[in-house]
Simulated scan of single mutants.
Amino acid sequence: MEIVQFIFSTWWITFLGGFLFFTFLYFGGAFLGLLLKKKFKLAAISPYRNYSQQVKKEIKISLLSVTVFALEGIPVQWAYTQGYIHISEQASIWALCLQVSILFLWNELHFYLSHYLLHHRWFFKKVHYLHHQSTTPTEFSTYSFHWFEAVLLGSVIYLPMLLYPFHYLALLLLPVMSILLNVLGHWNHDLAAGKSSQHWLGFCHRHSLHHQKVRGNYGFFLQIFDKLFNTNLKNERA
């Protein structure tokens, strides 16, 4: 718990720690994706239609998103020092697994609702269009979005922390899970090649299809919300 207290001791330590953490996640996730593609020689989902200097621009925009994520840690630091939120340091393995599962499900719902909002005509034109410039996404597309979108997606942690004292490992695992799924959803390679897009690993194809078709498939790993609100794309393969 001394580490938690140190990270939240001052706003600038919280900001610096967040910036380094998310920078590591971003580049670590991207390079891990590149290594996996090279090692397993996975099939591409669609032909590459990258625009000029796409990866360079994605990295530049993503570093701005990383900065926004780090800034969003400052309100958490303030709430922690004022006693409005609490972070647990003790939990059984089962309690930790339950907390991670709850945060994962909340992240899926939060992403779906945020993503659906971002596809409203005004938000898409002013904000979300930037992410969709990557018609064929890459491993470096994961954080490549408008600063407002970064604020919206980064706010996922606020409500859970206000409602319950989650263990610090569960809180750390949330962005780790998120970046891994985002890399796999944007790397344009299929983990379920030859299988239906409804396969549990079909999220890679479903999100790539979303980048091509723009409308529909607003969820990420889970299909439940797209099915519930009838926003899933029916196409099996692009």
Results as ranks from 00 to 15, higher is better:
residue 235 N to M: 13
residue 217 N to C: 01
residue 111 F to S: 00
residue 16 L to N: 10
residue 6 F to Y: 12
residue 55 V to T: 15
residue 125 K to T: 13
residue 2 E to R: 05
residue 234 K to E: 13
residue 237 R to F: 13
residue 166 F to S: 07
residue 93 I to H: 03
residue 77 Q to V: 00
residue 66 V to F: 02
residue 155 S to R: 00
residue 149 E to A: 12
residue 225 F to E: 02
residue 215 R to G: 15
residue 167 H to E: 08
residue 1 M to D: 08
residue 102 I to D: 01
residue 102 I to L: 14
residue 164 Y to I: 07
residue 131 H to W: 10
residue 33 G to A: 03
residue 74 I to G: 08
residue 35 L to R: 12
residue 188 N to W: 05
residue 101 S to D: 00
residue 165 P to R: 04
residue 185 G to E: 05
residue 147 W to F: 13
residue 6 F to H: 09
residue 215 R to E: 15
residue 68 V to S: 09
residue 161 M to G: 11
residue 83 G to Y: 07
residue 144 S to Q: 07
residue 181 L to D: 07
residue 4 V to I: 15
residue 34 L to N: 08
residue 19 F to Y: 06
residue 146 H to Q: 03
residue 165 P to W: 05
residue 59 I to G: 04
residue 59 I to V: 14
residue 19 F to A: 02
residue 70 A to R: 11
residue 210 H to V: 04
residue 212 Q to N: 13
residue 192 A to N: 04
residue 144 S to H: 02
residue 9 S to W: 05
residue 160 P to Q: 08
residue 170 A to M: 00
residue 56 K to N: 13
residue 217 N to F: 04
residue 219 G to E: 00
residue 51 Y to K: 12
residue 42 L to S: 07
residue 72 E to H: 10
residue 211 H to W: 01
residue 184 L to R: 11
residue 93 I to Q: 09
residue 131 H to V: 07
residue 71 L to G: 06
residue 50 N to I: 11
residue 109 L to Y: 02
residue 27 F to D: 00
residue 150 A to E: 01
residue 203 F to C: 04
residue 10 T to C: 06
residue 18 G to A: 03
residue 232 N to P: 06
residue 12 W to H: 08
residue 72 E to M: 10
residue 214 V to S: 09
residue 9 S to V: 02
residue 122 W to G: 05
residue 73 G to V: 03
residue 103 L to T: 08
residue 139 E to F: 12
residue 137 P to S: 11
residue 115 H to C: 01
residue 37 K to T: 01
residue 156 V to L: 09
residue 27 F to M: 05
residue 168 Y to C: 03
residue 58 E to R: 06
residue 141 S to E: 04
residue 94 W to Q: 15
residue 13 I to T: 10
residue 83 G to V: 10
residue 117 L to N: 02
residue 121 R to M: 00
residue 120 H to W: 15
residue 142 T to A: 14
residue 236 E to P: 00
residue 130 L to G: 02
residue 135 T to L: 15
residue 203 F to K: 01
residue 209 L to A: 14
residue 213 K to T: 10
residue 173 L to I: 06
residue 28 G to C: 03
residue 134 S to I: 08
residue 51 Y to Q: 12
residue 146 H to K: 09
residue 233 L to V: 05
residue 116 Y to D: 06
residue 178 S to H: 09
residue 18 G to K: 05
residue 152 L to K: 10
residue 8 F to L: 00
residue 74 I to M: 12
residue 54 Q to H: 11
residue 38 K to T: 03
residue 167 H to W: 02
residue 135 T to K: 15
residue 126 K to N: 15
residue 210 H to K: 06
residue 59 I to K: 12
residue 209 L to M: 13
residue 209 L to W: 12
residue 8 F to P: 01
residue 186 H to L: 07
residue 62 S to C: 01
residue 151 V to A: 11
residue 34 L to F: 07
residue 44 A to D: 11
residue 88 S to F: 09
residue 182 N to A: 14
residue 63 L to S: 08
residue 218 Y to W: 03
residue 170 A to H: 08
residue 130 L to I: 12
residue 196 S to D: 01
residue 187 W to I: 07
residue 46 S to A: 14
residue 177 M to K: 14
residue 224 I to M: 03
